[in-house]
């Protein structure tokens, strides 16, 4: 457990921010978060464990990719706008070209009979992983009727009824926030 971190007044080189987030992105095949914790808290000591948890939950709460939001926040803390840009670039640039390479492979060979079947299997598997992520998120909710009803409503309206996302969110979010504001804070924080 790491409980000291650099002060925001200390500066970190943009290059170091770029490299740290590059390492997080490249090492984190199939799940970036454990690696982000290792790099940011244990290796670089840019965040304490507590700060990491706070940054992460802020990153999840804000729209946009969670880990990219974390890169923006960490970059801004140590190097302002340049730092944010360096962090995001580190996170995105190399993986971008890698994934485009895969997409180019798919474009050329994706319709070959054998390759196509492999891709069918792979996409079913990826969808299954998405479901497992959803189950983990659902399990982390407070065991209260209103929270479970909201999970079910969001799933049913978008997944089964296939209603468009934006109206569903605009309808459900105010109800969700109203219900949440009436709930006394839990004794054990769940995240």
């Amino acid at each position: 457990m790491q409980d000291t971190a650099l002060q925001p007044s200390q500066r970190v080189r943009a290059r170091d921010l770029f490299m740290a987030f590059l390492r997080i992105a490249v090492a984190g095949v199939g799940g970036v978060l454990p690696h982000a914790q290792y790099q940011l808290v244990e290796r670089e000591r840019w965040l304490t464990q507590r700060e990491f948890a706070d940054y992460l939950s802020a990153g999840q709460l804000l729209p946009g990719p969670n880990i990219v939001n974390v890169a923006i926040m960490v970059g801004a803390r140590y190097r302002g706008l340049t730092g944010s840009l360096a962090g995001v670039a580190g996170m995105m640039v190399v993986p971008f070209f890698f994934v485009i390479g895969l997409a180019a492979f798919y474009r050329h060979f994706g319709e070959e009979p054998y390759v196509r079947q492999v891709f069918y299997g792979i996409s079913a598997g990826a969808a299954g992983l998405m479901i497992s992520t959803g189950v983990k998120l659902a399990r982390a909710q407070p065991r209260q009727a209103w929270a479970l009803l909201l999970v079910a409503a969001a799933f049913g309206l978008v997944g089964l009824a296939r209603l468009p996302l934006i109206p569903v969110l605009l309808g459900l979010a105010p109800i969700a926030l109203w219900l949440a504001s009436r709930t006394p804070p839990p004794r054990k924080p769940t995240s």
Partner: peptide, 19 residues
């Protein structure tokens, strides 16, 4: 507290549709 149940439901919906 309010938004994370919605996120959970939407991720499940996404997995279901992609399946």
């Amino acid at each position: 507290l309010g938004l994370s149940p919605l996120t959970a439901g939407l991720v499940l919906a996404n997995g279901w549709i992609l399946t």
